[in-house]
Amino acid sequence: MWLAMSDISSAMRRGFLDITPIIPAAVPIGLLFGAIAASKGLSPFEVWLMSALVFAGGAQFAAVELWSPPLPIAAILFSTLLINSRHILMGASLGPKLDAFSPPLRNVALFFMIDEIWAMSERRATLERVTPAYWFTMGLILVFMWSVSSAAGAVVGAAIEDPARYGFDFVFTAMFIGLVMGFWKSRHAGAGIVAAALASALVHFVFGPPWHVLAGAAAGLIAAWAAAGRSAAA
């Protein structure tokens, strides 16, 4: 019986272990986000609501940067769309690997597809099936930690110290480097990674966020496509 309780509890345990290293990075960033949002006039409840419903750190930081009266609603929503457009590529890649989910359950599950959960699941999909128990364990823990730490940051306000002092800001970078290297399995993947890194850094330097994600992804996909063509012809 494949749906044995031991399978479910072992998938939950695996999800818990995979999400744990992300918590020490997510909580200080959540506190910082809440403090910034509160300084822009958002109430702790509004901050909690945004973190619980939007659940996308990059887009939320960009939105509260723009948050001053009169509210530039179009700019806030366009920035949200642009920063989160990477989710479309992420979902296109991960979607077919969620075959252990019924379509309605998968559509609910996709609410939790933030970078870290997506990356952990892509990695797990190379070894084993991604199950609802694994996915929702990670998603519920992270949305709880993110929304509560955001609200706490809004209550405590500007008393938060700079997270860069402790290197918390670099945890995500180090984690993404580790994950990316795990995907470096072919020449065309390598070409895509190098092209994406250079294009993203260049566009970020020249134009600033949020264009670097789209530009880097586009350059990387074109480079992977081109490199695969050459190796196929050789």
Partner: peptide, 15 residues
């Protein structure tokens, strides 16, 4: 190549 390419595009500026 989508997973590594999107991940690296997010963090390349901080690297």
């Amino acid at each position: 190549a989508i997973p590594p390419v999107v991940l690296i595009a997010v963090v390349a500026p901080s690297m």
